[in-house]
Design a protein around this nucleic acid. Structure first.
Length: 807
RNA sequence: GCGGAUGUGGCGGAACUGGCAGACGCGCUAGACUUAGGAUCUAGUGGGAGACCGUGCAGGUUCGAUUCCUGUCAUCCGCACCA
């Protein structure tokens, strides 16, 4: 009797061999292989270590990498550390150690855990965003953006997290709270560094078409960019020379505008307010400025005040009251709107509350609605109450209205975006210092490129100040410097970059991580980039993935790289949750560590179970018990192998068919990314082979070897061992992905269902290529006296079904 | 409110392009081997005694629907006063 499956011995053996003789090589038989770049979203090294959910993504990417390896590619499959930023700093603060030390410790820990996956990672390519040799280039990119006018300073009220004590980007504010800690975000007037991502809005939107990404992510990005077409229309303020420009997407409803609203922050508010209304309006503006975003959102009813002043609707000269209300956003469009209560829900609510007239201009059947109870927001109908537009089809008018307005000289056709510039500075210690020097004469001067990296000073105290100043501001010897242009005493910028800075371009550095002269050499960039497959969670849909695209386009524009989209394909794996779909977290106590499972079941079993839990793109509840299933499968496969090796079993018809079907089925499912059904396929074919072996005493060498190759991306250790046991020398990863013979997939005889009126009554076995009449005759024969009505119709679908329709 | 996803046994899930619903696994039941079984192996396992009934619910198209169409409910996710 042969030895039972000993995962520990096998896994240790092969990991040692792979270390000494890597299976992923660039040259084979003197020939250079085509590259395939498969990337994981790199982790931030938290102190909590990895749980089985993190494993899942890494297993998926490794399976895909090894499959591509078997197809003959040289695989770029790197790993690194996103180690700057709030999580790392907060953890260090909590533990009372310097972030540099805790980060190094955490990286060491997580690296040990990741190595247990036995993935193909090429550790020579490792990068770490906190390494000065890395962030030198993060700073370099900022300097290039500054030179191109894409990085600029601005003081304005930004989103501020009182708990993290730092400013946030719009993308980091979710439902009015901080994405990191859930604290309600307030506004704070701060001097900020901004990146002009809006300049790339149009390209970021259009190029989504090029990407093989989940539709959901593309949609989230295009919604975030939020392009809309409309018109800016000028309303004169009655009795003055002032005019208010509004942005509207519905210039076709211009005749229905019965009032206007300015955002409380609008620059003309105080100027146009009638003297008698000044106190009321001032009071309202002040109250609005004190409200947080959350308060504004939570207001169930609309508020607002009349300015006492009127404007002239340019289309018909009608006099419309000007109001101030905080439901109008200052930073979208022009901060002022024309209001058409008949056809907009918000305007309708406001008009009802303040008893402002409502004029319907679109009517469904050309008939006006009496006593409107809600706005008619559908854009289909016939124009009414609209002067020369009366009788027009509203849908047609809507298309042309912006241009008509422009021709009339009362406004212009405009495009608007929701995308805002990126608030890029953080008032925290643990990030890349922004490489700018403030000179009293020359203003903002970038740190000369030869002086980069501008290293983060080592300090004892790095707690956030909460004042809006970075902790770096307190270090005089660092802050005080001289201007690179004139040598005058100057001060350094003390804000740091957000965590997204490093992750926006790290994937470029992997292919040339030791280059100290360039971010990435053009030669290597052309050779290995862009990323072919990017795997990670969906939570970065509008953060990291949008920023990376922006950076890539910028670097393309300045000639660093020759492509303008970083990630050709994107796959979002679902989350692994604890029982009842609850997210795994330390505080909930439902975290499952992979370490014990690897020890007890082995790496191969855990890899397979990570995939078997469910479709890779969906969330899955973790249940430890299920791992027994894949573990049993590997044991049975092992036993079959022991039974078959050295026996030289001749291949019979059953074995050949099973082998071909196995190759066909596994390959197809793998190509479809249906990894859970690949695993169940392995189990099914294994059961089938065990059945066959019962009769023949074992399975032939070719079939068992093929099985080993198919298994190799999933359970690499046992696959190698099996390959060797079946008498091959060298690694299974040079075997190449197997092919199948189409003619060996089906039997000559097929089982087909025989139905009466679509209900299966029996199953018969008939020749595959039998003609229709014979098939139906056989079907009827099998049905016998169940057939007892008038036959209306007879259906035969070869290989599938016979259906007799009777009355 | 808008947009998207999902809904199938006790559980996770499978079903190619409309063609035998429940593959594969967990769990469970019985048996075998055992001092023992949380090991292994064998058999069974949607409901119903049955003709039959069953893929969230109600309709429709079709010889035939988990699959296509219409409506509806539930859960989850994203966006949310963007004019």
């Amino acid at each position: 009797m042969s030895a039972p499956y000993n995962h520990k011995a096998i896994e240790q053996k092969w990991e040692k061999i792979w270390d000494e003789n890597p299976v992923n090589v660039e040259f084979e038989d003197g020939k250079k292989k085509a590259k395939y770049y498969c990337l994981d979203m790199f982790p931030y090294p938290s102190g909590n270590g990895l749980h089985v959910g993190h494993w899942r993504g890494y297993v998926i990417s490794d399976v895909w990498s090894r499959y591509k390896l078997q197809q003959g590619y040289y695989i770029i499959h790197p790993m690194g550390w996103d180690a700057f930023g709030l999580p790392a700093e907060n953890y260090a603060l909590k533990m009372g150690v310097h972030p540099e030390i805790s980060t190094a410790e955490n990286i060491a820990n997580i690296k040990k855990q990741i190595k247990q996956i036995a993935a193909l990672y090429d550790w020579d390519r490792e990068v770490n965003t906190t390494d000065p040799e890395f962030y030198k280039w993060t700073q370099w990119i900022f300097v290039q953006m500054f030179k191109k006018g894409l990085a600029y300073e601005k003081e304005f009220p930004i989103n501020w997290c009182p708990s993290c004590k730092t400013g946030l980007a719009n993308e980091e504010v979710v439902n009015g709270v901080c994405e990191r800690c859930g604290t309600e975000v307030t506004k704070k007037n701060l001097r900020q560094w901004m990146l002009k991502i809006t300049e790339y809005g149009e390209r970021l939107l259009n190029d989504l078409d090029k990407l093989e990404w989940p539709e959901k992510v593309k949609k989230m990005q295009s919604d975030w960019i939020g392009k809309s077409y409309g018109a800016e229309v000028d309303f004169k303020v009655e009795g003055t020379e002032d005019k208010i420009t509004v942005y509207t997407t519905r210039p076709d409803t211009l005749y229905g505008a019965t009032f206007m609203v300015l955002a409380p922050e609008h620059e003309l508010v105080s100027k146009i307010t009638a003297p008698g209304r000044k106190d009321i309006v001032d009071m309202y503006v002040m109250e609005a400025s004190m409200k947080s975003n959350v308060d504004r959102l939570q207001d169930k009813t609309k508020t607002g005040v009349f300015t006492g002043t009127y404007a002239i609707n340019p289309i018909n000269g009608a006099k419309v009251p000007i109001w101030v209300a905080d439901y109008v956003l200052a930073d979208y469009g022009t901060g002022a709107i024309m209001c058409v209560p008949a056809h907009d829900d918000r305007d309708f609510e406001f008009a009802k509350k303040f008893e402002i007239p409502i004029i319907q201009v679109i009517a469904k059947d050309g008939k006006e609605i009496e006593n409107m109870t809600e706005a008619y927001t559908d854009a289909s109908g016939i124009m009414i109450n609209s002067g020369e537009w009366n009788g027009l089809e509203s849908k047609n008018l809507k298309k042309d209205a912006a241009h008509i307005v422009e021709e009339r000289g009362i406004g212009k056709a405009t495009v608007n975006y929701k995308l805002r510039d990126w608030v890029f500075s953080r008032q925290r210690y643990w990030g890349e210092p922004i490489p700018i020097i403030h000179c009293p004469v020359h203003g903002n001067v970038p740190v000369p490129e030869e002086d980069l990296p501008l290293e983060l000073p080592k300090v004892d105290h790095y707690e956030p100040t909460g004042t809006g100043e970075s902790p770096l501001a307190g270090i005089d010897e660092w802050v005080n410097t001289t201007c690179p242009i004139c040598g005058r005493p100057s001060k350094r910028e003390t804000n740091t970059m957000p965590q997204w800075a490093g992750s926006s371009w790290y994937f470029l550095r992997y292919v040339d991580n030791k280059n100290s002269d360039e971010l990435v050499s053009r030669e290597k960039a052309d050779e290995y980039l862009p990323v072919d497959m990017y795997i990670g969670g969906v939570e970065h849909a509008v953060l990291h993935l949008l920023y990376s695209r922006f950076y890539t386009k910028f670097l393309n524009d300045i000639g660093v790289i020759d492509f303008d989209e970083p990630f050709t394909k994107l796959f979002n794996q679902g989350m692994i949750t604890g029982k009842n779909g609850i997210k795994m977290s330390k505080s909930k106590g439902n975290v499952v560590s992979p370490d014990d499972l690897v020890r007890d079941y082995g790496c191969d079993s855990l890899r397979m179970y990570e995939l078997f839990v469910g479709p890779p793109e969906l969330d899955a509840e973790w249940d430890d018990r299920g791992i027994d299933g894949v573990s049993k499968f590997l044991k049975r496969f092992w036993n079959l192998l022991q039974e078959s090796k050295e026996k030289d079993i001749p291949a019979n018809e059953d074995m050949i068919k099973t082998r071909n079907r196995m190759v066909y089925t596994i390959t197809k499912r793998l190509e479809d990314f249906s990894l859970n059904t690949v695993i169940s396929g392995f189990m099914e074919f294994n059961n089938k082979l065990i059945d066959i072996a019962k009769k023949s005493g074992g399975i032939d060498k070719e079939t068992m070897s093929t099985f080993a190759v198919l298994l190799s991306p999933f359970a690499p250790h046992i696959a190698e061992e099996a390959w060797q046991e079946m008498g091959h020398t060298g690694t299974v990863f040079k075997a190449g992905w197997p092919t199948y013979d189409e003619s060996k997939l089906t039997d000559d005889e097929v089982e087909i269902a025989v139905q009466i009126n679509g209900k299966t009554k029996t199953v018969i076995k008939i020749a595959k290529d039998i003609d229709k009449d014979t098939a139906i005759a056989k079907g009827k024969e099998a049905l016998g006296d169940k057939l007892n009505g008038n036959i209306v119709k007879e259906i035969y679908v070869p290989g599938r079904i016979i259906n007799i329709v009777q009355k």
